[in-house]
Structure formats: C-alpha cells, structure tokens
Design a protein around this nucleic acid. Structure first.
Lengths: 227, 227
DNA sequence: CAACATATTTAGCCGCGCCTAAAATATGAA
DNA sequence: TTCATATTTTAGGCGCGGCTAAATATGTTG
C-alpha cells in the first residue's frame, strides 16, 4: 500500500521550506525566521525547530539569530520542487484545460507526490515549455534555471513607455483572474498612457485596449521594455 | 503556501485504511486488525489506534476483538479514493504512455493529492473509461461502482474451457509485467489446453499463442467464461 | 473443562511539524 | 552607552501515525 512520497524524497513541509527559502534568497534578502514563517503562514517559533532539522540534514546553513542560507544540496531540492510545481502548472493549462488562476493550488499539492518520471513525461507531452503559465522559468531536470535579468514592473514605467509582459505574480488566484480579464498575461504588449497622482490609477493600452489599474496591481506585472 | 490535501479531505493514511478495509469487506471476510495491518505493511498494534480514530470520526464501526465495518460515510470516502486511484492509472497509460506495471505506485501517491476537478478532467480527457488498465471497475463521481458478478480465474478452468480475461491483480509490478509479456491482459481470449498434475504448469492458448504458466499466476487472472 | 495458540488491545515510546508563552539576543535611537 | 523594540530561540505541549513489549480476549483442542 505504501503511502510514501516520491522516491528519494523529502516530506512536503521540507520541500515547502526549501522552496520559500530559495525564493527569499533570490529576492536578495537573507532568509530570516520571520520571512519564512510569513511565507508559510506558520508561527515564527515553528520555523526555528524546522530550520534546525534542515541544517542537521545539510540542506541549509544556519547562523543563530542571523538567518539561513541554502546549501548546494538544499538548492537542488528546492529547484526540483519548483520544477515540479511549474511543469504541473503548465501541464494542467495546456493539456487539461485549466484556467491559469486555478493551477497553483493543484500544483502545490501534486508537486510533493509526483515522480520525476511523471514530471518529465508531462513536460515532454506539452513540448518542454520554458516557462509556466505565469511566465516563471521552469528549471531543467538537471536543476539549471534561467532566472534572466531582474525584471521591472508596470508600476515603474513612466508615461509613454512601451513594454511586453514577461511574468506575473502567481500567489493570489483572484488577482490572477483579474489580470487575465484585463489581458495582462505574458506576451501582452503594454503602453503606459498616463499615471494619476497620489497612488491613483495607471492608464494603459493592453494590446491596444484601454485599461486602468491600480499601482499595487501594476507592481505584480513584470515586464521587459520593448523599444 | 499551504501544503494540505485536496479540499475537504482526509489524511493519506486515513484514505489508505478505508481503501483496504473496503477491499477486504468486498472479498466477503470481515475486516480484522491483522488483515488490515498486513495489507498496509504495518504492525497490528498500530491498526488498533487508528481504528479507534476512524470510529470516532464515524467512518467505521468497531466491535472490540471482532473487527471492523465501514459506515456509509466510510464507504463513500473509500470509493472516492478508489476512483481517484483508477482514473489516475487509466490516465497515465492512455494519456502519458505509462506501462501498465508502472502506474500503480504513481497512483498510490497522487490519489491523495488530486482534487476532484483534476480527476474528472482526467477521466473526461480519456473518454470516461469504465475500468482501469488492469480491468478493475472505476467508481463514478457519485460513488457508484459496478463490481459485477464474482469472477473466476484461470486457475479454476478445466481443459477445453474457453474464456476472456476481464481483470488481473494489480498489486505486484513484476507479476503484471510478466502477464503483459505473455499477453494475459484484459480482453485476451484464453483456452486451457491442459493442466499438469501436482501443481504443475497450465498450458494455455492466449489469443492463439501457446503459453505455459504456473497455477499461482493463473489464480491472479480473472475471467468470464465465453461459450 | 483446561490449556494452549492466535488475534487483539493496551501501555509506553518516538519523530514530525505545528502551537503558545516566555526568555534571549540583536538593533537602532536617545 | 543604554534602553526600547523587534526578532529569534527555547521551553513545554499536542495530535498524528507509527513502533515494541506485555496484557487480554477468543476459540480450538485434547
């Protein structure tokens, strides 16, 4: 019967810790107990205990009161989990007709249960995409990832700027849903028409269609400027 | 982040207990602590504790020292888990090219993580099959299952009998692999040519090809007699 | 009916991953 | 430099789902 996880695997909580630590490190900041706790929606005190276990397993290094850093081994596990997550997201949208705002939660559970073989078969079945539906790069099966250059967001444009949406934050289904409704999906062409003062709305042309969005939302849409 | 299980769900161990209890009951026998423990590869003492928790949750009834019986509620959960398992198995073979002896372990893990929506989409994508790759019936999304009449096995045939393979045991990958090699898959036409005495081999015609198998293997191939 | 074999349960334990409350440490401002 | 505040860790606890060893119930058999 064997209810275990995929071969050679870590527990789901362990994979989740490593994933969020990887993301925090990627943002530049050192991963502190508090950040980790917040990302995982658990109490900071709980993180201390787990961090110790992860350090014991050689997945990260921990300097008391100073934070945490992934080891090479921890990074590998994190990237494998991220690959699983993103391949699953891509597969669900391309092969099974999922809306892009419904894939995150499903992937969040499946990423801990899928074998490497399944992930590779899924990726092959949809043509080995380079990114997930939100534009996030998919690590290769060898743990390489092309994080690309640091991306700006629509919030940082000045009127007249033209750009292309590369990626959007995927951590809020309602936001994703709305972004989809206004056409702000990876690949969309955007021109900032004007920006109202005092945190007011931004007027955009999204693939030629006029739209107005708030600055917070705009900061979740990552772009590359296109001429 | 939320590493939980699918919405409104039970833990993976709980689903596994209910599944094996369902199967034991289906075989006719009352589900005793020992049977359950053996099916789950855990110590009998561990079963006692879990059985109490399951009874507290109203998933089964427990008569001390006498065994266990699923309640209607427990049966529903068991059948939903079995549906998940079998739909996943069918999907992996039909949509992703899995060999039929590799799907069981994968399904064993995914069945606890997949949402109802995913299962239904998978089933739809492959045309709502009635059985899994091993011939086991797939419960409907409403918890109905057609267990069909009690099936005989090749082991019970007498020379000259002709039959069709309906279903094979799926709990041993090596056995499955071998059954596939000799063509004993659901749908195959089989004639028992002769049977050696003292537990010796059975000579078969499998879709016209001569084969010899042992009686134990034969007892894992379920059939319906066809004229 | 007594004695034994077998099945089941209880008792007591452990690790995981979470919790709250309290103590320790670091940091920035007065 | 010292103190207030924020962060982190420790202490102690809990439920789950396993374990082993020991006790107890069942039922079979001489």
């Amino acid at each position: 019967m064997m209810t275990g996880r995929a071969a050679g695997d870590y527990t789901a909580p362990v994979e989740d810790y490593l994933k969020v630590i990887y993301e925090i490190e990627r943002r530049g900041s050192a991963a502190g107990t508090n950040d980790i706790a917040q990302q995982l929606s658990i109490a900071p005190a709980s993180v201390s205990g787990m961090v110790r276990r992860l350090a014991d397993q050689g997945l990260l290094e921990h300097e008391r009161y100073r934070g945490v850093r992934l080891t090479e081994s921890g990074r590998r596990v994190a990237l494998r989990t991220i690959r699983r997550h993103r391949v699953i997201e891509a597969y669900l949208t391309h092969a099974l007709g999922y809306a892009w705002d419904r894939v995150h939660d499903e992937a969040e559970r499946l990423e801990h249960a899928a074998s490497d073989e399944l992930i590779d078969r899924m990726a092959a079945a949809i043509g080995e995409p380079a990114t997930d539906p939100h534009g996030a790069p998919i690590p290769t099966r060898w743990g390489e990832i092309d994080e690309g250059p640091h991306l700006g967001t629509i919030a940082e444009l000045v009127p007249g700027d033209r750009c292309r949406v590369v990626r959007v934050s995927d951590d809020d289904a309602r936001r994703l849903r709305y972004l989809g409704e206004v056409g702000l999906i990876p690949g969309a062409e955007v021109v900032l028409v004007s920006r109202a003062p005092f945190g007011g709305p931004l007027a955009l042309l999204v693939d030629g269609v006029e739209r107005a969005i708030g600055p917070t939302l705009a900061s979740h849409v990552m772009i590359e400027t296109s001429g």
